[in-house]
């Protein structure tokens, strides 16, 4: 058993994997160790290096499909320790095993594991884009607004997801703090720093009151579907969402509010009130159906314009309904 030591990131795995593939080392005898298990923290302190973009996917003498490298980049963010070994095994099968079709075979058990891990990472990234909540901490002297957010992702997705925020909020200064890694944007570049405790994050923002009001009032109590909500917004995210504390009460009162609406006496106010001006009179000619036979018998006496007007109103066959 040979132990391969890497840092727990995609780039480090890629370098090692390339070397091993070039040397034709089969996956069976390898043990991948990324120092994140705690026992071996040789590289632990290197985890938060500045973000490096993977440069190329072409290895000397070994060509790997780009689709695989894209998949590998996502899988690398997952926290499961077996990922490095399975990634190498699939890379081996694609190159030395000559199984070029492997990526299309979603039923292959190795590939399926990678796909499942990648899905979990994609979902985590998507939820980060959705559930990060910035809190304003002030303005710079040059007038740039400054915001800080606290978020707890499940996987190591901060580096991969930070560029999304940099492009969306380019004109603000912001930091996203997490227990594992933090991202910072100052309008020029993205910086990364080690994780911090939630105590470092601001506790409130005056807009949150408005946001909670909005949340409570956009909710329709007549359509309570708690499970549908929870499958998309699992409870683990609630503690960092300013609107989540409202859920319990909104849910509890929903049935009563709906009952009140149904049982309340119907509005007795005259449907068309005398005092209030009525709606716009229809600018269209009354859309009475035209009787084709009648029109045809009078056709001689009508101008072409009149005929075309009547043609537009004709509803003698079902075609009129689909006319544009």
């Amino acid at each position: 058993m040979e132990t391969i030591r890497i840092k727990p990131n995609f780039e480090s795995w890629r370098m090692q994997a390339r070397k091993l593939l070039v040397q034709s080392v089969p996956p069976e005898g390898l043990l991948w160790e990324d120092g994140s298990s705690g026992a071996d923290s040789l590289f632990g302190d290197l985890e938060n290096n500045a973000f490096e973009k993977p440069s190329t996917t072409i290895m000397p003498q070994v060509r790997i499909p780009r689709d695989f490298m894209n998949l590998a980049e996502l899988v690398a963010c997952h926290r499961v320790s077996e990922r490095w070994g399975v990634l190498y095994k699939v890379a081996w099968r694609l190159t030395h095993g000559k199984e070029r079709q492997l990526l299309a075979l979603r039923i292959d058990s190795d590939l399926k594991r990678l796909e499942d891990w990648a899905s979990a990472v994609r979902r985590d990234r998507h939820k980060m884009k959705a559930f990060v909540r910035f809190r304003k901490i002030g303005d710079t002297e040059t007038g740039r607004e400054q915001f800080v957010a606290w978020f707890e992702p499940e996987h190591s997705i901060v580096e991969l997801t930070a560029p999304f925020f940099a492009k969306r909020f380019a004109s603000m200064d912001w930091s996203i703090l997490t227990p594992w890694q933090c991202a910072h944007w100052d309008g020029q570049s993205l910086q990364f720093s080690p994780g911090v405790s939630s105590r470092e994050a601001p506790k409130e923002d005056q807009l949150e009151d408005y946001w909670r009001s909005y949340y409570a009032h956009i909710f329709n109590p007549a359509r309570l579907k708690l499970n549908a909500m929870q499958s998309e917004m699992p409870k683990k995210y609630w503690k960092n969402l300013p609107e989540a504390p409202l859920i319990a009460e909104l849910t509890r009162k929903a049935a009563r509010r709906t009952g009140d609406m149904v049982e309340a006496p119907v509005s007795t106010k005259a449907h068309v009130s005398e005092r209030i001006p009525s709606g716009v009179p229809s600018p269209d000619p009354p859309s009475r159906s035209v009787e084709p036979a009648g029109v045809l018998s009078r056709a001689d006496t009508m101008s072409l314009e009149e005929l075309s007007q009547l043609g537009l109103q004709c509803k003698a066959c079902p075609l009129h309904d689909r006319a544009t």
């Binding site: 959705a130 559930f131 109590p221 359509r223 309570l224 549908a228 909500m229 998309e232």
Partner: peptide, 9 residues
């Protein structure tokens, strides 16, 4: 992106 979900799902 769905930024939140109301209890009506």
């Amino acid at each position: 992106i769905c930024h939140s979900y109301a209890p009506d799902g």
